[in-house]
Computed example of a mutant assay.
Amino acid sequence: MRFREELVLNIQAPREAVWAAFQDFSSWPTWAKAIKEVSRVGSAWRFKARGQPPVDLVWVAEATERRPPEFLAFRSVPGVPHNLEISGWLRLDELPDGTTHLELLFEGHPHYDSPLLDKAADWYASVFGEPNKLLKVTFEQFKAHLEKTHRAQGLSTALT
């Protein structure tokens, strides 16, 4: 089952802070409930997320285009073991009030070594809305994490 998800969020934090937090992949498991672990694989990153029971979603992605702090394109790394092929991009625009407008396109499809697991994953995704739901929830958590961090930094600056 192929999926395509487009997300748009406005985050109450400066663009540079959003860019830095997005690329701090190793911290994702601390604020994203579905992300179990993130590790480095050469110049790419391996993500492991809670997926269709009993199988986790695993993808290894690398940047294909990077224009800090406004644009990042990414895709799965060919030949590296994973069960979710992905591609997409992230665009960040700073609004006049200091809010960051985030747009994300995330496309992909799960694939497993077993045709039976592929069929089970398709069924589970059609019934429960994975991985689209996972992506939406994760980026709502990203927004909440950033806004909380930005408010806390603003308070500590105001107190000094």
Rank of each mutant, 00 (worst) to 15 (best):
R15E: 01
R46N: 02
F139R: 05
G129D: 00
W89N: 09
G129A: 08
F71E: 04
W31M: 03
R46W: 00
G42N: 08
R46A: 07
A144I: 01
P54T: 02
T100E: 00
T157A: 13
F71K: 07
L90R: 11
W28K: 04
E130K: 09
P131G: 10
V55I: 15
D118W: 07
V8G: 05
R75A: 12
S26R: 14
L90N: 08
T157F: 12
W59I: 04
V137I: 14
P69L: 01
W31D: 01
N132W: 10
F74E: 05
P68S: 00
F128T: 05
P81W: 00
P96W: 01
A61V: 11
Y112H: 13
S26I: 14
F74L: 05
H150N: 11
S39W: 09
L95N: 02
P131S: 03
W59P: 07
K148P: 01
V8H: 13
A121Q: 07
A17G: 06
L95T: 03
F128D: 05
A49C: 14
H145Y: 13
G51Q: 04
F47A: 03
H82W: 00
A21V: 09
F47W: 15
V127T: 07
R46G: 01
W89H: 13
W123G: 02
F47H: 01
K33R: 15
E103N: 06
P54G: 00
L116E: 03
N132S: 15
G88L: 07
E147F: 00
V127D: 04
P131K: 05
V77Q: 11
E16A: 15
L105M: 12
T30A: 12
E5Q: 14
R2W: 11
H145V: 02
A20K: 13
H109V: 09
I86N: 05
T160D: 12
G129I: 04
L134F: 01
R91T: 10
E140T: 05
P81S: 08
P78N: 01
V60S: 05
H101L: 15
L117N: 03
R91M: 11
S114Q: 06
T149I: 06
R67Y: 02
K148N: 08
N10W: 11
T64S: 12
V58F: 08
V127N: 07
Q153I: 06
A61W: 01
A121M: 12
F25R: 01
P14F: 04
L155Q: 10
T160W: 13
L146H: 03
K133R: 14
Q12E: 14
A49H: 06
M1Y: 07
D56K: 12
L90H: 07
V18T: 06
S126R: 13
P29F: 00
V41S: 09
R91I: 08
R15Y: 00
T138G: 11
F139P: 08
S26K: 15
F25V: 10
Q141C: 04
E103D: 08
H150S: 14
S114R: 01
Q52P: 13
A44R: 03
